[in-house]
Amino acid sequence: MELQRVEVVKNIYSENEKIAFSVKEKLTQKGIFAVNVLGSPGAGKTSALKQIIKLMPDTKFYVIEGDLESDIDTQKMRSIGVETYQINTKGACHLDAPTINSALDNFNLREKAILFVENIGNLVCTAEFVIGEHIKMLICSVPEGSDKPYKYPIIFENADVIVLNKCDLKEYVDFDDKFFYDGIAALNKKAPVFEVCAKTGEGFDKLVQWINKVRV
């Protein structure tokens, strides 16, 4: 018997990344622009998606809802006529590429469309598992506080667009704009930030313009 050290140096995410790559290729070929929607629980991910969809009446949408349990968000999306598929992760805290790959079988992807994947409400590991998306849209909200870039730097670093929701609540909570924007400036030079209110729809016109500009 002999003890031997074998060099490996293999990224543990690599299997997920490989599958994500093929999901993205498949979606691109079919003319589907995939958006990984990230944010804390209750930040307003579902409310924001409803506002975006309302402002784009000529666009076809698919939505995948990821939740630990329940299909409340799926019911909301279906009630506005959007084809939606629910994933229940039964405890898993993030969606990954294999899960999205099989969820896509539930759609008949024939037209050009935008696919929104509402990830599990979580600012930590959802940032690290790619699912085949073209962009990551981070939804934060005013009541969460302006220190979030400092506490969850990776998700702010990886976002392609940052939406600050619930701006109607700025007058009720101490939200330090400068602290928030300084944190983002250090972490992410590319992502634009849009201030919105998903309750009234304010600010979504600019976000929709941006989405139309970047979508494939």
């Binding site: 018997m1 002999e2 003890l3 031997q4 050290r5 074998v6 060099e7 490996v8 140096v9 293999k10 990224n11 543990i12 995410y13 730097p153 990776i154 670093e157 400036a185 250090a186 972490l187």
Partner: peptide, 23 residues
């Protein structure tokens, strides 16, 4: 000055393994 993110601190890989062979 402003600090920018780097790859240091994001590592996540299997570096090496120690194995027994029956040689």
């Amino acid at each position: 000055g402003m600090g920018l993110p780097t790859e240091i601190g994001k590592e996540f890989y299997v570096k090496d393994i120690d194995i027994l062979t029956d040689k």
